[in-house]
């Protein structure tokens, strides 16, 4: 094996250049003052102070976490039953259903979000349909409903796939064993299936919550700019205001929040996996 070690060097180089370096740059920017010279290293904590003291930004942060949380909860509530039903199906139906679930992700997320714009607009498909019955137009686009709908729609496949995998690899004999020991179907589900599929739910949460909390084009397109989330703030700091230092600071705050939340989810995961170990 040793003689192949040199073959990893290009990848090490790649990781250094493409991942480590940009992250270091973000940290550097976050802790320095803005200025026209790229290389004036004047350290400051002001970027962070500005974010924490500004009620508007804190409201945006709070809103982002809230939306992401709601999205994740809806994804679990909708995704679990779907994954469960699919896992009960025969092998062939199983494959087809999983294919159908993953198929939308083959189309670019941006395109699909534009499609939702067309559906939700005041003169869009849905409102035209309601108009046939003399209803509406119901304002749907540019509401928190539209943003959450867009997020759930885009991220739910990840939740379903994770839960489905953990349900599918579960030893079916465990269900027989539970039935054998007197548990009816509901008891079997609550005491065996559900706890054993929680690791899938946890990794599903990771895959939904993370992109949801930092997403910026879904709130931009479906929220119509009135519904600003943290991702949009970061985007505008970099692209519109050109304040890279402040943008980097917000990114770092988000990264820390995400890391902390991941740490707790992992903890839940571990304690679920070894529940009962005292």
């Amino acid at each position: 094996m040793k003689q192949f070690r040199t073959m990893t060097y290009p990848y090490v180089l790649w990781i250094a250049a493409m991942i480590v370096l940009p992250m270091l740059l973000i940290v550097l920017y976050a802790f320095t003052e803005s200025g026209n010279d790229v290389l004036t290293f004047r350290f400051t904590l002001e970027n962070f102070a500005r974010f924490v003291t500004d009620r508007v930004f804190l409201a945006v942060l709070w809103r982002s976490l809230y939306i992401a949380l709601v999205t994740t909860v809806i994804c679990i509530l909708l995704g679990y039953p779907i994954a469960y039903v699919i896992a009960q199906m025969g092998e062939r139906a199983n494959t087809i259903m999983i294919l159908l679930i993953t198929m939308p992700t083959w189309v670019n997320m941006l395109v699909r979000t534009y499609a939702w714009m067309g559906i939700l607009q005041d003169e869009g498909v849905l409102n035209s349909f309601l108009g046939l019955f003399g209803l509406g137009p119901v304002p749907m686009i540019h509401t928190s409903f539209a943003v959450i709908l867009g997020m759930v729609y885009n991220f739910i496949p990840f939740m379903i796939l994770q839960i489905h995998t953990s349900l599918n690899k579960m030893d079916k004999n465990l269900l027989n064993a539970a039935a054998d020991l007197g548990a009816d179907r509901i008891q079997t589900f609550l005491r065996v299936t559900l706890p054993l599929s929680l690791p899938g739910v946890v990794s599903g949460i990771t895959l939904v919550f993370l992109p949801a909390v930092s997403s910026f084009f879904i709130p931009k397109l479906l929220g119509g700019g009135q519904y600003v989330l943290v991702g949009n703030v970061i985007e505008s700091q970099f692209l519109t205001s050109g304040d890279w230092n402040f943008g980097s600071a917000i990114s770092m705050i988000m990264a820390i929040i995400i890391m902390v939340s991941m740490y707790f989810t992992r903890k839940i995961d571990v304690s679920v996996a070894s529940a009962g170990k005292e």
């Binding site: 065996v192 706890p195 070894s274």
Partner: peptide
């Protein structure tokens, strides 16, 4: 059961 089917989470 053949492979015992013990509940791994307990």
């Amino acid at each position: 059961f053949q492979k015992y089917a013990l509940f791994p989470h307990m």
